[in-house]
Design a protein around this nucleic acid. Structure first.
Lengths: 158, 158
DNA sequence: GAAGATTGAAGGTTCAATCTTT
DNA sequence: AAAGATTGAACCTTCAATCTTC
């Protein structure tokens, strides 16, 4: 089957999407790194724990919520445990599983970092979009996630 | 000034955008890594050179086009030169500048990798979007790029 | 054997310092 | 002093192998 190349219009869209996909993580990362000494991924993980019941999640659940592989998360959780932001607790019900719990120090860290992070997200995303465009963003992102995340694990609050 | 937290609707949009921003690079990277032995960033750099006049660009220009820092690009170009895909040529007109030129082997490498890459982009993006949604994607991405890229360097073919 | 998770090594990116030319 | 680029070290992610429990 011959390759169906991108049209000029599609290429235009692709270059913009690609730019966002490359530049947005950098912007998030450098802000939170400078202001809180965390990577954006670390912040996201702490934030998910903060919102979870008992401030606790299994490794696998946390990996799903943060769009990460288990290997990546495992390294990050070890470092954050060393820094006192989380505890690792063997799961009582299942000897294979590990529960990760946010510590008080971890909770304080997220709370301190949150305002700056939200401000960055507002600056780069919501400040420049109309309410209608926010709706369009949801629809378009959902469409792409049907392929990127076929099981629909990354769509909380649908 | 008190933090203006995200509404539930904004949070929904943010979680989806964030998922796309994390998962799309992984998807692009693993496909092209498996099939061509290149990172997606290396492919993007070779592709930009391939489309440039004389298949040549200055480091700074190439960094802009690939959304990268000069430090990152410098390391990548060194590795690709070692592999024979590009040549580094001191710029005749300006002793500080370096021109990067695609070699024949580099050209063959991009050409071999392109069909698989385009297929991946189609699968994850254009196959799941209506023409109207492609237009919306362009508008929304452009809006975010006014903040992520204030100088408008990343919007070729506007 | 599959699921849940961890580990070490290899590879890529970031940061700060540096160098040369303008 | 600024612009263009490079470098090495530190850090993070990926990959493959491994371990334990179900």
């Amino acid at each position: 089957m011959a390759t169906q190349w991108l049209t000029e219009h599609e290429m235009k869209a692709w270059l913009r999407l690609y730019a966002v996909v490359e530049l947005l993580p950098s912007a998030l990362d450098s802000q939170i790194r400078r202001d809180a000494g965390l990577t954006h991924f670390e912040y996201a993980a702490l934030g998910m724990l903060s919102a979870a019941p008992e401030q606790t999640l299994r490794m696998t659940e946390l990996a799903t919520k943060t769009n990460a592989t288990l290997a990546r998360l495992s390294h990050v959780v070890r470092r954050m445990a060393d820094r006192g932001f989380v505890d690792r607790i063997p799961c009582p019900g299942d000897g294979r599983a590990t529960n990760v719990r946010l510590t008080d120090a971890g909770q304080r860290k997220v709370e301190a970092a949150a305002p700056g992070h939200v401000a960055t997200v507002r600056t780069h995303v919501f400040d420049v979009l109309t309410p209608e465009q926010v709706d369009q963003l949801i629809t378009v992102a959902d469409a792409m996630l049907t392929r990127l995340d076929p099981d629909g694990k990354k769509k909380p609050g649908s």
